[in-house]
């Protein structure tokens, strides 16, 4: 292995870690407030990336829009579209199933994910093939501590971290966040405090789904290519990260996401054959789960969000 490319591995690992963490946080939020696993999460990420692409294509003919403006508009559109979609799914699919076994919610959202995936494949023009995602960020190099880093990687890493920090502050420091925590810890008592349970659940699903859309956009900006099935692996990786960190804990989800990216990076360096990196990462995750079945930050019954 060439030593010179090690910093590339590091940057790549950080980008992936941020994206995984964003997906994992969504899984943990949904599980926290409603005790459900929403398996369409990865496909929401994909749909978010496509929403951004659609926004870009519709706007690219307006020359007056600067490139930064374009980033902001497409990202905001993707976030808003998926937040709305998340709230609708919560209202009409997840909440009605509240009395049913959690497994039903898992299966129904699994099917929903499939439907979203196939819908994009069938209805997006030439949807079976990968789509180029616009290069909106500068790919010039800068040197930090002797590391050669591309500007776009840096922006993606900090953009993702900023989103996660923003979510953390929202949950810890605002009235909405306090309501989310109260619902997650004891939904009945939260209602006795005057909290509108349904509103908080919809808000949480909107937030988590919007975050997935952001992850999808960052993923597109990094690889400059998206496709209808990109959510499949990202969903499984995000879910594994959330579980290995301890489902229900936000910090655990973040740690899990970066852990998974670290394992992939180690796998990639170690085996040289790129395909083995996922095998290696999943094998280690399975081993960790066998060692700590409730995740690294073990959740007690009340330890939610």
């Amino acid at each position: 292995m060439l030593l010179g490319s090690l910093d590339q591995y590091l940057i790549n690992g950080l980008v992936l870690g941020v994206i995984y963490a964003m997906v994992a946080v969504g899984f943990t939020l949904f599980f926290g407030v409603l005790n459900v696993i929403k398996f369409s999460h990865g496909d929401v990420l994909m749909a978010g990336a496509f929403a951004a692409l659609i926004a870009y294509i519709s706007l690219q003919n307006f020359v007056s829009i600067s490139i930064w403006m374009m980033v902001v508009i497409t990202t905001t559109f993707a976030f808003a579209a998926m937040a709305l979609f998340g709230a609708i799914v919560a209202r009409f699919l997840v909440l009605p199933l509240r009395g049913a076994p959690p497994l039903n919610t898992l299966l129904i959202t699994l099917m929903l994910g499939l439907a979203v995936r196939e819908a994009v494949r069938l209805f997006y023009p030439n949807g079976s093939n990968p789509k180029p995602f616009p290069k909106l960020l500068p790919d010039t190099d800068i040197f930090i501590f002797g590391l050669e880093i591309r500007h776009d990687s840096l922006i993606i890493i900090f953009g993702g971290l900023a989103a996660i920090c923003f979510l953390h502050l929202l949950i810890k420091k605002t009235r909405l966040g306090l309501s989310i925590q109260a619902v997650a810890q004891d939904s009945e008592t939260a209602r006795l405090m005057g909290i509108n349970f349904q509103k908080i659940v919809l808000g949480t699903f909107a937030l988590g789904s919007g975050l997935a859309a952001l992850a999808g956009v960052l993923n597109g900006l990094y690889y400059n290519e998206i496709n209808f099935s990109m959510g499949l692996l990202l969903g499984v990786v995000g879910f594994s990260s959330a579980v290995v960190g301890g489902l229900g804990s936000i910090l655990g989800a973040i740690i899990g996401g970066f852990l998974f990216a670290l394992l992939q990076t180690i796998g990639a360096i170690w085996f040289e054959v790129p395909a083995y990196k996922d095998v290696f990462a999943f094998v280690v995750i399975i081993a960790v789960m066998a060692w700590r079945p409730t995740g690294l930050l073990a959740e007690t019954k009340s330890d939610r969000v």
Partner: peptide
């Protein structure tokens, strides 16, 4: 009944 304080707050 049973106080029901939010344990992690």
């Amino acid at each position: 009944e049973g106080r029901r304080v939010f344990p992690k707050l």
